[in-house]
Design a protein around this nucleic acid. Structure first.
Lengths: 227, 227
DNA sequence: CTACCGAATAATGTATACAATATAACGATG
DNA sequence: CATCGTTATATTGTATACATTATTCGGTAG
């Protein structure tokens, strides 16, 4: 069949499965910066040969999620105070700029949407459903991101960073004050958007993420104390 | 010898050589988006096996310098109008923010340095030594970047993007007006730094890079016409 | 007991082999 | 001559083998 070539029958390469696997494990915090990753060991564990494992590892390295050990093998990176700070700093820059762009093109109906998300989050917070608070807050950001064309480098970078950030927000997600701060931040963002003030938008988003950074650093401190 | 382990006797892996090779070829414009890159062919050409070639290719893909072809093989990316625009847009964001940071920590002696670079570039321009104009302009930016700690993600991203950008600036480097604009831009940047006004610094740098973008897009147009 | 040597072990880097699949070439048939 | 199917070719994906090098550990000489 000539049509057959249209349909991509290629199954997902092992390399990508391994990559996705490891990435998930890292981002979920399941794989910490404690354990050393070696090709052989991973290959054995996952029941594949070293080749696809190497390729997955190199990709993760390129993305900065793991780092080659001076000795040999890799280690999950990104848990040092500096790295967390940098991550949030970059996020603040990029998302701040994104909001500036968004403010120039946001459609009227988005305001309602965003308003709803905030209200739902607030309601969830007041009835103690923290999981839902997280859900609606995430929706809020997601909705914003969808207003940036999803093919752009900027979009991809933001999405990627938001994923990386997740593992540093365990505390905020549970603390009431943190959640309230986040919701208040969203209100400010929405206000800035309504005012259609690009300058203010960028500033507000930066401020918002800066707060998130403080929370993340607190989380980090706590974790380090526990160990 | 126990000392031996301290000294890293490992020679550079072929994978890295191939990577550096291809990257250089791409950034210098020597390898255009015309030719298709396949593992076998590259391996043969470079006289190595496919293994290190694959690894180099995957890395370049992760960095966005090449893109997998729907069919098979890779192609050099980043020459579409959109991609060039995005590249400069991101650069403007990141370098703008970097200048903001720099304005808060720039030492007194840097002002002289930067002044000198501008003067030399201007002098070179007036005597028609375009190569030198480029050199001193580059020094100007390099000096700025050195004021951002060179271990940060921000720094690495900026350096990386500047490299990627080079191949789109052939025209400016030869046109007198373009060069003058660049030098003027540097003067403005220096002024903003002297005023120690973070806001102005960020804005000025963004503006400066926006101009560079226009030049790059002109280059692109010209090239497309030639073909 | 300490320093050094060397074998054993671990891990990586590269090449190669083989299977799977997509693309291209070619020829036959309606 | 267009279309379909078939074979050949190109290209990739994975596994494996082998060489190289680091690290560790144990033992021996001083």
């Amino acid at each position: 069949m000539t049509v057959r070539s249209q349909v991509d029958k290629r199954e997902v390469p092992v390399r990508k499965k391994v990559y996705a696997n490891l990435k998930m494990a890292i981002l979920s915090g399941h794989l910490g910066p404690k354990e050393r990753l070696t090709e052989e060991h991973l290959a054995e564990t996952l029941g594949v040969s070293r080749t696809p494992v190497r390729e997955a590892l190199y990709r993760l390295e390129a993305e900065g999620l793991i780092r080659p050990l001076e000795t040999r093998g890799f280690i999950v990176s990104g848990d040092s105070r500096e790295e967390v700070e940098e991550l949030f700093e970059l996020r603040a820059i990029l998302e701040g700029y994104a909001l500036r762009i968004i403010s120039e093109r946001i459609p009227e109906e988005s305001f309602q949407q965003l308003d709803t998300f905030i209200d739902k989050a607030q309601a969830a917070l007041e009835t103690g459903r923290m999981g839902d608070v997280f859900k609606w807050n995430t929706r809020f950001h997601d909705h914003l991101h969808e207003l940036v064309s999803d093919t752009t480098r900027l979009y991809r970078m933001i999405v990627d960073m938001r994923k990386q950030v997740l593992r540093h927000r365990k505390v905020t997600l549970q603390s009431t004050e943190g959640a309230q701060r986040t919701i208040d931040g969203h209100r400010k963002i929405l206000l800035a958007l309504r005012l259609k003030d690009p300058e203010l938008c960028e500033k507000t988003m930066r401020q918002h993420i800066k707060l998130a950074k403080e929370d993340a650093l607190l989380t980090l401190l706590k974790e380090n104390k526990e160990q």
